[in-house]
Simulated assay, not measured.
Amino acid sequence: MNPILYVARLGVGRGWHEFKIGLRGADETGFKLVFALSFALVLYFQRNATVEGTTQSLASVVLPSILGMMVVVGSALGGAGALSVEREDGTLLRAKAIPNGMIGYFAAKVTSVTLDTVIAVTLVLATGLIFVPELLSTGYAGWLALIGILGLGLLATLPWGAVIGSVVLSPQSAFGLTMLPIGAITAISGIFYPITALAGWVQGIAQVFPVYWLGHGTRWALLPDSAAAAEIGGSWRPLETAGVLAAWAVAGLLVAPPVLRTMARRESGSAIEARRHRAMQRVG
């Protein structure tokens, strides 16, 4: 077998193992459950509200949007956080010392972060459907479209999480450079209310980023055609959704490899010691 493919396969197996260990951790599993229940609570209070210009309940519009947002949060924040933590504790340097070790390392991270994101999305969907049972009538085509959109969303955002994790100086910086911008973009992307309620120039900014298109794409997959009245232009835009997400994916896959290679070359014992020293100063 090709040695690179062999190492990549080992990396996928390691990522699966890391994912299973995470599931057994009470803190991480509890956090995911609390996160899902908090969104379910939001849907509970929205269940009787109706989106203006449609017969759709606000909760039925928000739930698909949250699924799209969860992909961005899970892949970008998860990728950046995992990489920055393991740069600081020396895990990445140990992987670098093994032949083709970086390939296996990144295969493991992609696997574990992807599985974590899938679990988080599944929990939010499962708890959300309790208060939005009308989405259970979605046909097979709609669920397949949802899986396709979320998968493309992972490709569009995971490489950028790796880029952030490669350039930041600490895990705290990784959190700040992902969560804060994601929160700001989410606020203008029509996730928790129709984007058409915002000014035109704000709508234009939102359409540059994957958060809006993931929300739009998930709504297109799960909602009836009549719900498009609350969308920009009053219609669904699945082709534009796929095009924008694919563009972000291609750009990320072009940018991430050279950034990751540069970061890996710079990893050394002295660099880890310097980061640990800065971490101790923050604690002190």
Rank of each mutant, 00 (worst) to 15 (best):
G11N: 03
R261N: 11
G165H: 02
G161I: 01
A8H: 08
A187C: 13
R24D: 15
W201F: 13
H216D: 06
L180Q: 13
W213F: 08
T29A: 15
A8N: 07
G234N: 09
S173L: 11
A197I: 15
H277W: 15
N48A: 13
V132C: 02
L43D: 01
M179W: 14
S166N: 08
S166D: 07
I119G: 05
G74N: 04
Y6C: 13
I232K: 00
V283W: 09
R261L: 10
T186F: 05
Y105P: 03
I205N: 04
Y140M: 11
G161E: 03
L92T: 03
N100S: 12
G13C: 08
A174D: 00
G153H: 01
V124Q: 01
A26L: 12
G234L: 04
M280P: 04
A80W: 00
T196I: 11
I103A: 11
I119M: 09
L254G: 07
D116N: 14
L83Q: 01
G234K: 02
V118H: 04
V42M: 07
S173I: 13
R276M: 15
T50C: 15
I164G: 00
L245P: 04
L92D: 02
T241N: 06
L144R: 05
T122L: 12
A120I: 03
A221M: 08
G101T: 09
P171V: 02
R275G: 07
L43G: 00
A108G: 12
R219D: 05
R237S: 11
